[in-house]
Design a binder for these strands. Structure first.
Lengths: 256, 256
DNA sequence: AGTCTGCATCTTGGATCCAGAAATCTCGGG
DNA sequence: CCCGAGATTTCTGGATCCAAGATGCAGACT
């Protein structure tokens, strides 16, 4: 009786969803359904993924009970998840009025990429300072798998693993944490950009790994910076498009 | 009316406290008692402050019920607070065994200060690039008040305000957020260091402001870096001392 | 007719209650 | 005398229930 039947989601549509995040989210919940130590982290993962892949668009109101029933748990773990997501900067609490998916302004995006360039180039310098053959081999491997898997969540994981190795996340966990945090802020837009973007910056993995292998620090840093600037521009374009779309929402003339 | 009587804290002493964090925490709770929109953020503030000022030392087990009764609320807002503090990196959850105050290793401290130097010098450069007379005046004002208030929490707030203006937090909120996060990680040790530390680096506020006013970027950056390195060394010394103290805990023979 | 105010409803936030797992204490055996 | 297995106790994590604040609508007053 709690949240049982596989329908139950259909009847709570239309809060103010642009498309229908509910059914998509229910599918996500299904994929994550099994084998979690605590449902709180499950809720966190589901909602986070839903935000990052665009199922829950920026500005969307996150009603606790709806999310709870969709995921199939009580409101309490949902609240935990939302609190975590607030600390992650993905959602925003409005005092007593609930939480909404945080959106990103162009200025914020620019700032994020300034910081990413600063932190990630520095990370790369440090990483290259004590590079080993073993790490290099692992880096090539990870780059290959990242290039191989082009679809969805697997790709994101593989790319994350690549950069974790590139930046020596194991030996510089705090630095990595900051970088991940910044990546998270733009993650929702990065993914959208990837779907529509050209792949001119596509094989930068290989180039970058080559420069790293050659020990050419300046070249590697330049490549990385260039890559990040390219992604930044893509994200900015996407933000532009989105704000334009929001300015003229539904094709409906007010008067003749 | 719910969390009424001002006693109720005295009766639950002695779980496994080294000194007696309970009574001190109860005092903190008293200071924070009035006028909060939600008790969740109150619990967050109280526990956070308790960690930062050393009332709850690193490694201390945080039992939800104890904290709840000490603060005078239920366990639920305490859980919310702990989740937030976990995202802040101040506490650490052990799967099903509760939360403990996270401690900092020397390596982590070193990393934090590497990152702080990187981020804060960059922030200073950007800030100085578009400095105005108005901001400069405000900066001097804040520096004065920070130097004036030498005691406790007020000093921390004043100094934070100074740096917020120095780094132009209003126009670079994400950068400021990262810096604050890093400051938080070492906050508990910085405060302890300040209590025992000499004040050779003490009037760096003035020097720094002077360099900023003169527009001498390299000088200002050098001063800031030097200051941070000094604080870092102090924190490292303190960590050293603490680890030594932990190696020889209580003077108690096991047998005759 | 427009606007302001009061009421009903909805949703969040908090408290109490319940179940499952971990730590500890104890008792029995080696 | 020490070690291990089982039971008890304690604590976390989750669910349900309750109160308070906010939003939206409707009616009345200007």
């Amino acid at each position: 009786m709690t949240a049982g039947e596989s329908n139950g989601a259909d009847e709570l549509i239309g809060t103010e969803a642009p498309r229908d995040p509910e059914s998509a989210l229910a599918r996500l919940a299904g994929r994550h359904a099994a084998g979690y130590r605590s449902v709180g982290v499950m809720a966190y993962d589901i909602i986070r993924e839903a935000i990052l892949d665009g199922t829950l668009p920026p500005g969307h109101k996150l009603r606790q009970e709806t999310l709870a029933e969709l995921i199939g748990v009580s409101r309490l773990p949902v609240r935990s998840a939302l609190i975590q997501l607030e600390s992650d900067g993905l959602v925003e609490f409005h005092d007593r009025r609930g939480a909404v998916v945080k959106s990103l302004s162009s200025e914020q995006a620019r700032e994020v990429y300034q910081l990413r360039i600063l932190l990630e180039t520095e990370a790369l310098r440090h990483s290259m300072a004590d590079m080993t053959d073993q790490r290099l081999a692992r880096l090539r491997e990870l780059g290959r798998t990242a290039d191989a898997k082009q679809e969805g969540g697997d790709f994101v994981d593989a790319r994350t693993a690549f950069y974790a190795e590139l930046y020596d996340a194991a030996r510089r966990p705090i630095q990595w944490e900051l970088i991940e945090q910044l990546r998270l802020k733009v993650g929702r837009y990065m993914l959208g950009w990837r779907l529509v973007g050209d792949d001119t910056h596509h094989h930068s993995h290989d180039e970058l790994t080559d420069a790293v292998a050659a020990g050419d620090v300046e070249q590697a840093v330049a490549l990385l910076r260039h890559h990040l600037e390219g992604v930044r521009d893509g994200v900015l374009d996407m933000l532009e498009a989105e704000s334009l779309a929001k300015a003229a929402p539904t094709r409906r003339r007010s008067r003749s």
